[in-house]
Write a protein that binds this DNA or RNA. Structure first.
Length: 785
RNA sequence: GGGCGUGUAGCUCAGUUGGUUAGAGCGCACGGUUCACAUCCGUGAGAUCUGUGGUUCGAAUCCGCACACGCCCACCA
């Protein structure tokens, strides 16, 4: 063994070893309880960030723990390379836009680019030591996954839960697609609040304040608050919209904010979601003046063809000319933007496909209640979201690189034609139905929309399990054991998966849900590229090694965001070095020692003490791990290893192994060292898989036989090594040692200094009488009272 | 506006079902080792447990209120 632990060399070596040995390959035939993880497939959008390192470390600690408990762990890996995010990546890598190259070429380019970047992408996860089965990974755009997704779509169609409807939809003019409620994000924007005169039919004038004057052409009503005394007499009157001249009714609705502006508000189809509510509630006419491209249309007359922003400026100028713009003031307000591109969303009537599920809110809430939530309070977040749902799930997207909606429309009678399941996956653009339409026509119009990525990701348990080839085993694996994920996508991934599982199987998708947090910068602020405070995981892994970084990650409390801390990583590195070093030192004394259970007969009290402590640590550790409290488990093993084992046990046993009084006591010490070091390594293995493997391979493999520490079983508390009474007495002896050390420290003496004449007072002298010779020898003290 | 969470040593965090002197790591001070440790070990200082009112023989822990911070949702004309 080399003199110093070279993490770079060793980590790479063991990573390759695991891969070569297919160590983490799932074996469906293996006996034992299955622990299956619905791994979150990272989005193939370039680089792994520090948050990935953290969250996959968490999952991996859990996976490794269960594997070492003897469970058959199914820990699959997939990449999400379906949809808008991938399109954007492909565009930026290749320096083209999809509009330039056309749909067919673009899809090909996507496939090509994906296969190019995938190996590098996956290697990042391997470097983090994630023990997924990388021999068989899935991709959400693969034909197999397309088939699963389309098949489930057809199933919902059969249930009557898929419908297409022209309906006001959240629409992103930049991405040219419909988006879902969950894809909205708030953005603080500066805007101008414009006070505009409206004339009434009876000649009076009112003032209306708006930030969106370009929508005047879409104005369909004016609202006041029903209990606003100032405007009571306006209700029922008719106003004339400036410039465009349409006559609109003035109505009352209690959603109007009396304090805002003049307390009179115009309703346009559609300026925001309130307009939408009013449109439905008051049965208002539809006046759309904006196109999907974000320009004004015919209805806007002279402003047709201008962008929203340009038109806003022009209309304001015209109002000014006419004397109808009274005042303007700059305000900060938040607007709804598309989370993928930051563009302000519009509400436009478009034809979209929906999954009907608003009627199932109660059922979803019930399912949420049946899940085991870690931490518990995250359930409330999901429940609030479910209660607040207002729209059915819009699953169609007007994108190119996605899973096609498997539908044709008959050109003659308009009937919807579905493919049969055995022909899936299909792209209606490139294939035709196998039969004529019932009306006799054989001409079809393909559906051009693709499915929202969440419509596919929500089937992740089905996708993950599709990789399991053994049918019998697969049948027992749903619901899965665990869904690990971050709290930011509870409303997306977690909810949608729960909903799909409910719709298709009337079952929970998993038993447990584990929620992790985000990584903040060292000051506790959100990391963002724009702020320049993002941490590059490559550099950190390079500098400190994976074990050290995982050590930092494993301090994160479940559900909580936590800070990036280079100090904690350094602590991790120290721990890895200490594990390597202490093991090396301890095992140095075991050359030529062959483990024999009979050696346990001659255990000294310090051996019995450390065994008792180990038993305790094992028990506490397991309890914490079982409830996903790995930071606490790590603390337990840290304390046992560093304090009890290194600083106390090794220091005490040193003399015994250097100069043993007899063979029996030496062998008892060697027996203890063997067992305890191996125990420590195993307990650390889920956290620090590399350094523990290094020591295991170097010393234990030849005797333990199992080819990797990660395939061994965790130690269990053993009754024959439990000596509570002796341990308690021995603990008192250690207290006495502490008192002697204190005396020496206060007198600025070396710990080795001989205290011949000085007598030291210790507590509980009676209890530790039998240890006085040992203490006296260890601490070089003659007189102890 | 609604919901959730957090507030404990200079910093980051533990504190199980309320129970004798509130813990750890880092940092700090002092000392010792350097024949296991690109170090390590020891000793120590440092906390009116955010505030406030209550329940109790007893509260960091339970309850009410207030304040601060963070997040989610809604609003955002």
């Amino acid at each position: 063994m080399q003199k110093q632990y070279d993490f770079k060399k060793q980590e790479l070596k063991w990573q390759k070893f695991w891969e070569k040995e297919n160590l983490y390959k799932f074996n469906p035939k293996k006996s034992g309880k299955i622990f299956s993880i619905d791994t979150d497939p990272p989005t193939l959008s370039g680089k792994m960030h520090i948050g990935h390192v953290s969250s996959y470390s968490h999952e991996d600690i859990i996976a490794r723990y269960h594997r070492m408990k003897g469970e058959n762990v199914y820990f699959p890996f997939g990449v999400d390379n379906n949809g808008l995010a991938t399109e954007r990546m492909v565009e930026s890598i290749n320096g083209v836009t999809l509009f330039e190259v056309g749909r067919k070429n673009f899809v090909q380019l996507c496939q090509k680019t994906i296969s190019k970047v995938l190996p590098d992408f996956v290697s990042g996860w391997k470097r983090v030591g994630v023990s997924c089965d990388f021999s068989n990974i899935y991709s959400t755009i693969s034909p197999a996954v397309q088939k699963i997704s389309q098949q489930h779509f057809l199933e919902l169609f059969g249930q009557g839960r898929i419908y297409q409807k022209e309906s006001p939809t959240l629409f992103c003019p930049a991405c040219q697609t419909a988006i879902a409620q969950a894809e909205l994000e708030d953005k603080e924007e500066q805007s101008v609040f414009n006070d505009i005169y409206f004339e009434l039919e009876d000649g009076r004038t009112i003032i209306i304040s708006t930030t969106r004057p370009e929508l005047l052409a879409s104005c369909v009503a004016v609202f006041v608050h029903p209990r606003d005394k100032r405007h009571k007499d306006l209700i029922g009157k008719t106003a004339i919209v400036p410039i465009f001249g349409q006559k609109v009714k003035i109505m009352a609705d209690d959603k109007v904010d009396k304090e805002k502006g003049s307390g009179i508000v115009m309703c346009c189809t559609f300026g925001d979601t309130t307009d939408l509510d009013w449109y439905f509630k008051h049965n208002l006419p539809l006046r759309i003046s904006i196109t999907k491209q974000g320009e004004l249309n015919d209805l806007a007359g002279e402003f047709k063809g201008f962008s929203i922003k340009a038109a806003r400026k022009m209309i304001l100028e015209k109002l000014k000319e006419k004397g109808q713009l009274i005042s303007q003031k700059t305000i900060e307000h938040s607007v709804n933007v598309h989370e993928r591109c930051g563009t302000e969303i519009e509400i436009l009537p478009t034809k979209q496909w929906f999954i009907k599920y608003l009627d199932l809110k109660e059922q979803f809430l019930k399912q949420s209640g049946k899940l085991n939530w870690y931490p518990k309070y995250m359930k409330i977040r999901l429940d609030n979201w479910i209660k607040g749902l207002r729209w059915d799930w819009c699953v169609s997207r007007q994108r190119y690189f996605g899973i096609p909606i498997p539908i044709w429309h008959c050109k003659k009678c308009g009937k919807i034609i579905l493919p049969s399941v055995k022909d899936l996956p299909i792209d209606p653009l490139h294939s035709n139905p196998t039969k004529k339409c019932s009306c006799g026509s054989s001409e079809f119009i393909p559906e051009t929309d693709v499915l929202d990525t969440w419509a596919t990701s929500s089937l992740s348990p089905q996708i993950a399990l599709s990789l399991v080839k053994n049918k019998e085993t697969k049948g027992t694996m749903f619901p899965m054991s665990l869904r690990p994920q971050a709290h930011d996508i509870i409303n997306f991934w977690l909810f949608y998966t729960l909903a799909r599982s409910s719709l298709h199987y009337k079952k929970l998708p998993w038993r447990d849900v584990f929620i992790s947090g985000h990584v903040l910068d060292s000051k506790g602020e959100k990391m963002a590229k724009s702020k320049g405070n993002a941490v590059d995981p490559e550099a950190i892994l390079e500098k400190y090694g994976t074990d050290a970084v995982r050590y930092w990650a494993s301090q994160a409390r479940m559900g909580d965001d936590f800070r990036f801390s280079e100090e904690e990583i350094q602590q991790g590195k120290r721990t890895a070095t200490k594990i390597w070093n202490a093991s090396r030192f301890a095992l140095m004394h075991l050359t030529n020692y062959a483990l024999k259970d009979s050696d346990a007969k001659n255990l000294e009290d310090e051996d019995k003490w450390i065994f008792t402590k180990l038993n305790r640590a094992i028990k506490d550790y397991a309890a914490k791990m079982d409830s996903y409290e790995y930071p606490r488990a790590k603390e337990i093993i840290d304390g046992f290893f560093w304090n009890d084992f290194c600083n106390n046990y090794l220091e005490i046993v040193k003399a015994r192994v250097y100069e043993p009084e007899n063979k029996q006591t030496l062998k008892a010490a060697q027996f203890t060292i063997y067992k305890v070091v191996l125990g420590i390594l195993k307990l650390y293995a889920p956290f620090m898989p590399f350094v523990t493997e290094e020591v295991y391979q170097d010393y234990f493999r030849k005797t333990e036989k199992t080819k990797s520490i990660h395939l061994t079983l965790l130690p269990e508390p053993e009754k024959k090594f439990d000596f509570p009474a002796i341990a308690s007495d021995f603990e008192t002896a250690i207290d006495a040692i502490v008192q002697i050390r204190k005396y020496k420290s206060e007198h600025q003496l070396s710990m080795k200094a001989e205290l011949g004449e000085v007598s030291i007072k210790v507590k509980n002298k009676g209890k530790i009488k039998k240890y006085l010779p040992l203490i006296s020898k260890l601490m070089s003290v003659k007189k102890i009272e």
